[in-house]
């Protein structure tokens, strides 16, 4: 099942990137996609985290919210850099997600918004470095944590 979905995704990517659709070239593409799937199966890369299907229904809403957040914190970081008043702080937060994929999503979301960086991860404690106490309060208020928890659903 996962192998078939990987094959379909690879083939779609190949067709989008190539742009030539003659018979010979397309059959060569199908052969190379099948070979990639075979190598991935042999290397045991297809595990239960390979395709997190339970993310997809709510992913779109989350992405829109994340882009809005990235835009706002870009503005704030630009203000801080121009004014030059920085007071960095380091602290730890707790992640309440249960699956590993959701934890990775949460840590990457923290790092993706400029102004906050995840520096260390141990079990479900994250060590976060923030550029300013405003950014720190943003992370400590656990809004993003609840969003990712909602994105994860009832797993």
């Amino acid at each position: 099942m996962k192998s078939i979905s990987l094959f379909v995704i690879l083939l779609g990517l190949w067709l989008l990137m190539s742009g030539h659709y003659s018979f010979l070239i397309t059959s060569l593409g199908v052969l190379s996609c099948a070979f990639c799937v075979y190598v991935a199966r042999r290397a045991k890369l297809i595990d239960k985290e390979g395709l997190p299907l339970f993310f997809f229904p709510r992913l779109f809403n989350y992405l829109i919210w994340l882009f809005k957040e990235i835009f706002i914190s870009n503005l704030n970081t630009a203000k801080v850099i121009i004014s030059g008043k920085i007071e960095p702080e380091t602290f730890t937060v707790k992640a309440s997600q249960s699956t590993d994929v959701a934890k990775v999503t949460y840590a990457n979301s923290i790092t993706l918004t400029p102004g906050t960086v995840t520096t260390k991860i141990k079990d479900n404690m994250f060590e976060v470095h923030a550029l300013n106490s405003d950014f720190g309060n943003d992370v400590r208020s656990n809004v993003m944590d609840k969003k990712v928890k909602w994105l994860e659903g009832d797993q």
Partner: peptide, 12 residues
């Protein structure tokens, strides 16, 4: 650690 924020701003 502070410079990582500036690099993140370029990237996003």
């Amino acid at each position: 650690f502070s410079r990582i924020h500036a690099a993140g701003m370029i990237d996003t």
